[in-house]
């Protein structure tokens, strides 16, 4: 006797239910297994292999790639790779903070537009969000090039040599990164700001709270869901950024994305590239985790 169950109004058996669920989830599940889980597993495995003479993967178990990443090379210890990792974290953090500092005012500005024209202002943020990153980064290269007023101004102020461009430079990387990832911060913040309960803000103002306290205690807690998404959407792509540092940073301001590309491109060292990718993945997760804890403790403080 098979057991019958009532599953949301349908009289069926657990077996039939499982079959139907599996028939829906099997194809996409299998796809993700083959092209997502297995590749990532392969990457972890390759990170413990070594590079052969011709750039092939030699399957000998070794932790040499991680030792190399930590700076222990054949010529003794050097901080080169750790410096790149640290710099990537720092650039991603600064990019996230700067993007948020600009995204909050913009989100409030859009939310304050009259209902009729608000969607146009919102579209003004969605359009760069949807424009390809290479196109937008190239636009920055053009704007920072030697013949445009910005570079001339900097040259006149004595910051750079006359006739040279403002890139490659660390400053160009920051500008390009904020310009690229700003829309990712604005859109989630806007959805939170739009739903803001203004009576709480007005109550805080009535009780003579300073502007900072109004923001920290009346606005920030209410926009926390949007803020969390904004941080995730800016920090993660900023950690793995490759196009912006490649085009605007040059070889002297390398980030981890460029290091990975180098290993899979010209150096042809897949094992070391995999180890670096694994390091990037762990750093990203660690960064998100600390920021989440910060946000959680900041909320109760």
């Amino acid at each position: 006797m098979t057991r019958l169950v009532i599953w949301y109004g349908e009289l069926t058996t657990p077996r039939r239910l499982a079959m139907r669920g599996a028939s829906l989830a099997a194809a996409p599940g299998l796809w993700l297994l083959v092209f997502l889980v297995m590749p990532l597993t392969a990457m972890v495995a390759v990170a413990f292999a070594t590079r052969g003479t011709y750039g092939e993967v030699v399957w000998t178990l070794s932790t040499g790639n991680f030792r190399r990443l930590a700076g222990f090379g054949v010529l003794g210890w050097s901080a080169d790779y750790l410096l790149i990792l640290g710099r990537s974290c720092w650039v991603a953090l600064v990019t996230t903070v700067l993007s948020l500092l600009l995204a909050y005012p913009l989100a409030f500005f859009i939310a304050a537009r009259p209902r009729r024209t608000r969607y146009l202002w919102l579209a003004a943020v969605i359009i760069p969000f949807c424009t390809n990153l290479v196109v937008r980064t190239y636009a920055w290269m053009l704007l920072l090039s030697s013949q445009f007023p910005l570079a001339r101004l900097a040259a006149a102020a004595g910051l750079i040599d006359p006739g040279s461009a403002l890139y490659p430079s660390p400053a160009a990387v920051y500008v390009g990164m904020v310009g690229s990832f700003l829309p990712f911060a604005v859109l989630p913040l806007y959805t939170s700001v739009e739903r803001l309960n203004w009576s709480v803000v007005e109550a805080a103002q009535d009780l003579y709270a300073s502007r900072l306290r109004v923001f920290l205690q009346a606005i920030l807690p209410q926009t926390l869901p949007g803020l969390t998404v904004a941080v995730i959407l800016t920090f993660i792509p900023a950690m793995g950024a490759f196009v912006v540092p490649d085009l605007l940073g040059g070889a002297r301001y390398m980030l981890v994305g460029n290091l990975i590309q180098q290993q899979f491109g010209s150096s042809r060292d897949w094992p070391f590239g995999s180890a670096v990718s694994l390091g990037l993945m762990l750093l990203t997760l660690a960064g998100l985790f600390t920021m989440r804890r910060r946000a959680a403790t900041g909320e109760t403080a």
Partner: peptide, 11 residues
């Protein structure tokens, strides 16, 4: 939650 370059490399 992972940077796209990691997927690219894994693939």
């Amino acid at each position: 939650v992972t940077p796209d370059i990691i997927f690219a490399v894994a693939l």
